[in-house]
């Protein structure tokens, strides 16, 4: 291989890496470095190195631990749920059923709705007294529910709202992946006597492996770093029941002005996320 030839991949990577260096890596390093410093509150403005004090402060804080618990429950439910539903929806709207085009269009609509607008709409639709959903429930004889105002229902409700946007969004990628599976392969499996389930499990799924890995990893990251729904809908309540770690970290930094413990919290979140993502890569690695 010539020298020029060896430089090819680096040249392809150059624009992305330069942009990432300035807009991501240096800011990331600077942002996370705050976790080792006390917040600059004094008039002298000097930042003091405090070692792991910010981490100790968090570990002593019951709100931090409740936030970890909420994030764990949220993640364990929302990620498999969204990926499974996106896969199901992708396969469903990819069927050759009459009128499927209309359904596909409708079901993909939430993709274009911003999370701000979606939160506004669902916040109003789920209102205890005036919401559309309770109007519906009442019409069929079910008692009104508090949804986002009930400590037991708030997190499941938030999972629902987040998935209303999330599932169609991830379905886009599944559809792009399904698009790549030649019809002949599926036809061949049928001819061989495989039923729909067998075809799906043994032909479609293996061929979607790379797409699924992408969806799983990207979805996990998106959900770990989620903060707009608690910010707009619940402020982490009621009773801290929707106080996701990213929202808590954001609040510590930008409301409480405590950049140190905010950065420490992000760093902890990042480590957890890294472990989960590594497991996902290992689980879905090519089997050769």
């Amino acid at each position: 291989m010539t020298k020029v030839e060896r430089s090819v991949p680096y040249l392809f990577l150059l624009p992305a890496m330069i942009l990432l260096l300035f807009w991501r890596y240096i800011p990331i390093a600077m942002g996370l470095r705050e976790s080792l410093y006390s917040n600059a509150l004094s008039l002298t403005g000097a930042k003091t190195f405090v070692g792991l004090d910010n981490f100790r402060y968090l570990f002593d804080d019951p709100v931090f631990w409740s936030s970890v618990r909420v994030t764990a429950i949220f993640g364990i439910i929302v990620n498999p749920l969204q990926v499974a539903l996106a896969l199901a929806l992708g396969v469903l709207v990819n069927q050759s059923l009459r009128g499927i085009g209309i359904f596909r269009t409708i079901l993909l609509l939430p993709v274009a709705i911003s999370i701000n607008v979606a939160a506004l709409a669902w916040g109003l639709a789920l209102d205890t007294n005036y919401g559309l959903v309770n109007g519906l429930l009442e019409a069929v004889g079910v008692a009104r529910q508090d949804f986002l105002r009930d400590p037991d229902q708030a997190l499941p409700t938030m999972i629902g709202i987040v998935s209303w946007i999330g599932v169609p969004f991830w379905t886009l990628f599944i559809l792009a992946g399904l698009q790549g599976i030649p019809h002949e392969v599926l036809e061949a499996a049928r001819v061989d006597g495989a039923n729909r389930l067998q075809t799906f499990l043994h032909v479609t799924l293996p061929l979607l492996r790379r797409v699924l890995l992408f969806v799983l990893v990207a979805d996990t990251i998106a959900n770990f770093t989620l903060f707009v729904p608690p910010y707009l809908l619940t402020r982490g309540g009621p009773g801290n029941s929707t106080n996701l770690m990213m929202y808590d970290a954001w609040k510590r930094g930008f409301v409480y002005g405590d950049l140190g413990s905010s950065a420490a919290m992000v760093l902890i979140l990042l480590l957890v996320m890294a472990v989960v993502v590594i497991i996902q890569f290992l689980a879905l690695r090519p089997q050769h």
């Binding site: 105002r149 009930d150 400590p151 402020r235 982490g236 309540g237 009621p238 009773g239 801290n240 409301v255």
Partner: peptide, 13 residues
Amino acid sequence: EDILSSAFEDIRN
């Protein structure tokens, strides 16, 4: 203010 707001909201609920 933020902590009290959450507390009042919880009490209201």
